[in-house]
Computed example of a mutant assay.
Amino acid sequence: MAEVHTHEADDHDSAYAGLLVNDAHWAFGTDFEDPLAGVDTTVPEGVDAQELAAYCLQLGDDALILSQRLSEWCSRAPDLEEDIALANIALDLLGQARLLLARAAAADPSLVPALPEGSPVPPEDALAFFRSDREFRNVCLVELPNGDFAETICRVLVFSTYRLALFQRLTAHPDAVLRAVAVKGLKELAYHRDFAGRWFLTLARGTEESRRRLEAALAQVWAYRHELGDDQDAEVVLEQVLATSGVAAPGVRPVSTVGGHTEHLSRLLAEMQVVARAHPMGLW
């Protein structure tokens, strides 16, 4: 291993510099397909292309940022099973983000940041890694730091419940691409909701400490619930979870999130985007 490491160090100034070479290094490949390859991305008649793109960008940003937050649990979850479960949820959301950002770019190419001429970065990656925090359209709920395990469970429960209800409606959207993304996401989001719901019940019925942490976490998440919109179906599901768990809905005032993000987003993006920005000609 030492000889291999020395060889790589001789060839490149840093490990990441190897990404600029036109071959496959370590876990990085150069032959990933366009996520919308073979799909008719023509915007349907009667649908405003810019509005469709903006909407897909918002949905994609929500998934991307929460995916990044959940990936921070890798090797830190209470046990291996939950570690894998949270990683799988993060991967599901990352897949949704990739499709939605690709759809946004196809519907309105002007959204895609300008990159150096000849850059191999695909549009969905450009949107993910080369926008500033002010250009992201995600809700603040997904960018907040993880907190403890109870807080993550509450956030996944609330977010996935509302998103599942939304995706169920989007299966009837006039845009075929967005419809397909919604259909694909239904099973994923149902699993996310059920995983979080089971843990919510476990923590509520566990020790005094687990219940205390759960109630404190729910209050923090509940203050951002309004960002996800008014959805009767989602609210009914959450009411059922609370009733079954014997937990009262928090009486907290909504946090004002109009006109911006929290300071946590810029820090998250700095970590998420650092390699791509250092090597904009890199092949991923």
Rank of each mutant, 00 (worst) to 15 (best):
A2Q: 08
H7M: 04
H7G: 00
A9N: 02
D11Q: 06
S14Q: 06
Y16V: 09
Y16E: 01
G18Q: 06
G18T: 07
L19V: 01
V21M: 10
W26V: 12
G29W: 02
E33Q: 14
P35T: 11
L36A: 05
G38W: 05
V39C: 11
T42D: 02
T42G: 07
T42N: 03
T42M: 00
V43D: 07
V43R: 00
E45F: 09
E45T: 06
G46C: 02
G46F: 00
V47C: 07
E51K: 15
E51G: 13
Y55G: 15
Y55F: 15
G60I: 13
D61M: 03
A63M: 14
L64Q: 07
S67D: 13
R69G: 15
R69Q: 15
R69M: 15
L70P: 13
L70Y: 15
L70D: 13
E72D: 15
W73H: 10
S75H: 15
A77L: 12
A77S: 14
D79S: 14
D79C: 14
E81F: 10
E82V: 08
E82Y: 08
I84M: 00
L86Y: 02
L86M: 01
A87I: 08
N88M: 00
D92W: 14
Q96H: 15
L100T: 12
L101S: 12
A102Y: 02
R103G: 05
A104N: 12
A105L: 13
A105Q: 11
A105F: 08
L111A: 09
V112S: 06
P113F: 00
A114G: 07
P116H: 02
G118H: 04
P120A: 01
P122R: 02
P123R: 04
E124S: 08
D125H: 03
A128T: 12
R131I: 14
R134I: 03
F136E: 07
R137A: 15
C140H: 14
C140F: 14
L141H: 01
V142R: 03
E151Q: 05
R155F: 10
V156G: 07
V158E: 10
T161H: 05
Y162C: 08
L164A: 03
L166Q: 14
L166Y: 12
Q168H: 11
A172I: 10
A172P: 07
P174N: 00
P174E: 01
R179W: 02
R179F: 01
L186C: 11
K187W: 09
K187V: 12
E188K: 14
L189H: 03
A190Y: 08
H192F: 00
D194T: 12
A196V: 04
R198W: 11
W199Y: 10
R205A: 13
G206N: 12
T207M: 01
E208A: 12
E208F: 04
E209D: 10
E209V: 04
S210Y: 07
R212T: 00
R212S: 02
L214Y: 10
E215M: 07
A219N: 08
Q220V: 02
R225I: 05
E227L: 01
D231L: 05
V236Y: 06
V236Q: 05
V237E: 15
L238I: 01
L238K: 05
V247H: 14
A248V: 13
A249C: 08
R253C: 02
T257I: 12
H261S: 09
E263Q: 14
L265D: 07
L268M: 01
Q273M: 03
V275D: 09
V275Y: 04
P280C: 06
M281T: 03
